[in-house]
Design a protein around this nucleic acid. Sequence first.
RNA 1: GCCCCCGUAGCUCAGCUGGACAGAGCAAGUCACUUCUAAUGACUAGGCCGCAGGUUCGAAUCCUGUCGGGGGCGCCA
Length: 602
Amino acid sequence: MRHGPILAPQQAKEMMSLTATLSQMFGDAFASQGLDTSYGTVVVSARPDLAQFQCNGAMAAAKQAKKNPREVAQSVIDNLVDKTPFAELGLAGPGFVNITLTDEYLAEYIDSLDEESKFGTLTDEPKKIVVDYGGPNVAKELHVGHLRPAIIGESVKQTLRYLGNDVVGDVHLGDWGMPYGQLIADLEDRFPDWPYFDESKTDGYPETSPLAIEDLQVLYPQAALRAKEDEDFAARARAAVVELQAGRPGYRALWQHMRDISIAAMKKVYDRLNVHFELWYGESTINHRLKPMVKRVSDSGDAYESDGALVIEVMTDEDTKEIPPLLVLKSDGASLYTTWDLATIEDRVEEFGAEEILYFVDVRQGLHFEQVFRAAHKTGIAPPEVVLEHPGNGTVNGPDGKPFKTRDGGLLTLRELIDMVVERAAQRIEENALAAEFDDEEKGEIAEMVGVAALKYGDLQNHRSSNYIFDVDRFTSFDGKTGPYLLYGAVRMQSVLREAGGRGLAAGTVIAPTVDQERNLMLQLARLPEVVARTAEHRAPNHIAEYAYELVADFSRFYEVCHILREEDQARQASWLHLIELALAELRLLLSLLAIDVPERM
RNA sequence: GCCCCCGUAGCUCAGCUGGACAGAGCAAGUCACUUCUAAUGACUAGGCCGCAGGUUCGAAUCCUGUCGGGGGCGCCA
């Protein structure tokens, strides 16, 4: 790490990214022609053989101003105030402006990058954002379906936070539905003597849970099955839910036990994935809001009775497609997930002041969220300016292209999935003679990090909304675009810096590049801000995943041709060390935004 | 029946919301290690972007139609 001057927070410098700087220069040139500055947007060139950057605004500007695009482009070039940064400015095709920087300008820019200035990342106007990305059910073990929301949500949360927003992640437990009525009713039959079922008692229940998580995992499916087959039992289960939600002390105490042991079990799995929730709220958290909220939407006329149930019409005159009304109360008067979702929005707005609420949930729940969002805005539960968004995720599929299942057709637990990848990673490490020198404990730690990185990167490199095929062998490979390859890149950077440190070599000013691989690495290092911004904008970590790979690949190419420790020109060597420090700092940041840990060595 | 998503190289997937000959990884073939971790790098080959129209100076990207696959449509979450 390079240690610049320690700046007090209020003095922390804000700097612009390279493309933002260039865009401003071109924007000014457009403005001087009476055209909008937004046409000045400069992006990385699609044709690296022709130029480093390009500006395509002249074509759009010409269309709007009814001018000749090539003439507009030429006059923009002519009206750039400062041309010293440019080695080449060319006009091509219908009106592309090709831009190549001088090596000196590029080096100077790269030299100014550091962690304090976030490598040129401009922070957002801070917003209060709630990220809802868990959704596991109490009493059920986490399964494959919980993987994507967890790791995508965590990554976007970290990214939004890095950009300066006030973000909290909420697991939003499924802890208030029918399953708990079924469990309670079933337990009451099995253990009628338990104090929880004695209606004459209102307190003095056991401190610790009589049930272990393993018990719940067995009991839950049995109770669900029983409710399906036994109508009498189902009726008692429904009654138990009503009593639970009404606050019957014994039921609440038993339910609390189930919730506590479930959370403890979930945390173990989420911890392995580096997924950490600030809030462990659930559907039950907003129970006290349900009645007043329902009354309010009924009184306002937004909600009305339909087939005995209470619904909110969410279709408008502008809709060409059919959108069914949102059901907010069942015909028996009980609340359901729509009720809880609405009340949860109310809670997040009133208690936290949420300006944006993002739901990282399976895309298949798209219609539900569309209905809930519309209802929330229509009823004023969410003020109009509050952004409600459902960046949905696709599924994890098996080799057959269908949602992942175990060999016997069951649902694979998340713990089993992680174990599978970590085991394969351990095998790969074992196959390699280089790991032999590490003791078993370190090998185990490395296998865990490599395995989890393999799993997470294998997932995150796909766009959030697409389904992908889970392939342990491919994910854990050290070759190609994989988690292990990225970790290996980071480890090599660390290794060079460690060696350099041992020899008393220090990083210095970045000087003008002389070889392509060096120049390309610099250009790559400059791209981070736009990639981070794009990830946040699209709520899609695959942009960061892709960029992290490109960065490591450019580092590897540079490393191949530029032998840092052997370099005799001391200024060049110091410059290269600086580049490696920057590459490592950026890579660590990118991986931290993907919530992937980096080992010291491997 | 209505609605949503997907169809890109042999395989797995990107493609920054209209820009220049469509990209990556794997697999295949060729080449480079007395190395700072070769757990690497270089090169070759591979695609009428499902199909047919349309809008545009310009379309994998937008519109219409069509075929194929997946998913969703009030008392489960």
